[in-house]
Design a binder for these strands. Structure first.
Lengths: 227, 227
DNA sequence: TTAGACTTTTATCAAACAGTCAAGATTTCG
DNA sequence: CGAAATCTTGACTGTTTGATAAAAGTCTAA
């Protein structure tokens, strides 16, 4: 252990075993923390799931909190990548459409990461609040300006850009975080891939056109002055 | 304690003290479980927060799980009330508009309940999956039919009704479950009430009209064939 | 007012938990 | 190879946790 520390002050070249085991541990920890949160997770279970003894695990990460923090550190970057790609120069609607799709893909491909993030939020983000302020907020501010620009140019409807971002986050992450509920309600008929495509199609319609039928659509008669 | 059990088999008339203390306990437990989940919560903290000793608390609820279950039992009913009120006979858009508003009000007025529910979902709903199947699913099925009817009549745009419901749930509950994040991003300028009104206004626009600008709006020129 | 029902506390327990230590096993590399 | 570095383990520590038992205290209704 003292070697680990000594090396850390140098260039910290990692052993094969070190790389493998840290990966195993982080994977098992993600499984555990994403479901039970920080307090609900136990080192014992993480170690078992990672296929090693508890002291061995603690050789790589000295405290429970270190594992959690390692997990969180790599999370936020990945998590914000789709938003970073939102391009001010592109066409607004296709840009938004593909942002939504990228977020939905993340919910499909990294549900555990999504749940870990959700868990941290539910707890009031005690361990990443600062990161939210220094990394998340500036990015959102920047992209909110992009959206505002599009609105001023009349290229998308004028709405609060931050709330727009919230709604994209929440609708897409819902499929990871509330997966059980989604499955109960949709039934087992459609597989995961089918559900994904349905969700993508639905969200596209919602965000682009909303629910109000086009003026001049078929059965327009019965409505008086909707809303 | 044996008296408590004996009474339970009879008509279970509750003492004044019993009523008061159970209420105190459930309130403290909601606070604790909604943040830390089932495993992360401890009886000690719940007892302290309820202002009583741990054995005293356990006199009213014999096991940790009993408290959690009492909480969950009263939750789902309240939680589904807004959807129950969705009226097949009413006008579609105003009905949806007020459903969204009711859900948003619940997120504002019962954020702890929302987080408790979210926490249970994140864990895979081990304790209420059955309830979801017997209570939630039939209700959603019923309301999905209502929505389908409106779509067939051309009164709202045709979309997958279940995904529509998901998106209403996720966007509204987001304001309770991810409250920290929302506050970090929106800044402290607007108080809770202001944020609520902004969210309500935004969601109304989103769900009714989406982001695509009305045909014939001001700066239509630059777009080619959006999406 | 007092017996019996109800409530609270003190003391206690076994299991689970985060974390340590030193000794033994294995790998790496000159 | 063989020694140094790295890795793994078993045994252990102090604390927290969920839960119980019994006794002491309080309330309430006849």
């Amino acid at each position: 252990m003292q070697q680990l520390k000594a090396r850390a002050t140098e260039t910290q070249r990692k052993t094969r075993i070190q790389v493998e085991n840290e990966e195993k541990i982080l994977d098992a920890a993600l499984e555990e923390f994403s479901v039970h949160g920080f307090r609900g997770a136990t080192i014992d279970r993480i170690a078992t799931h990672a296929g090693m003894s508890k002291p061995n695990l603690l050789y790589y990460f000295r405290r429970k909190q270190d594992i959690y923090e390692a997990l969180i550190a790599r999370l936020l970057d990945t998590w914000l990548e789709p938003l970073r790609e939102l391009d001010a120069v592109g066409d607004p609607l296709p840009e938004l459409r593909s942002y939504i799709r990228r977020k939905l893909e993340m919910a499909r491909d990294f549900p555990r990461e999504s749940r870990l993030f959700a868990n941290e939020m539910l707890q009031g983000a005690p361990r990443i609040k600062r990161l939210l302020e220094t990394e998340l907020k500036p990015l959102v501010d920047e992209k909110a300006e992009v959206l505002k620009g599009w609105m001023k140019a009349g290229r998308i409807n004028p709405v609060d850009p931050r709330h727009l971002i919230f709604s994209i986050w929440s609708t897409t992450q819902h499929y990871a975080d509330f997966d059980v509920q989604v499955q109960v309600i949709l039934g087992p008929d459609r597989g995961a891939e089918g559900r994904f495509e349905d969700a993508a199609r639905y969200l596209e319609t919602l965000f682009l056109d909303g629910l109000r039928p086009k003026a001049g659509s078929a059965a327009d008669a019965p409505r008086i002055r909707t809303l």
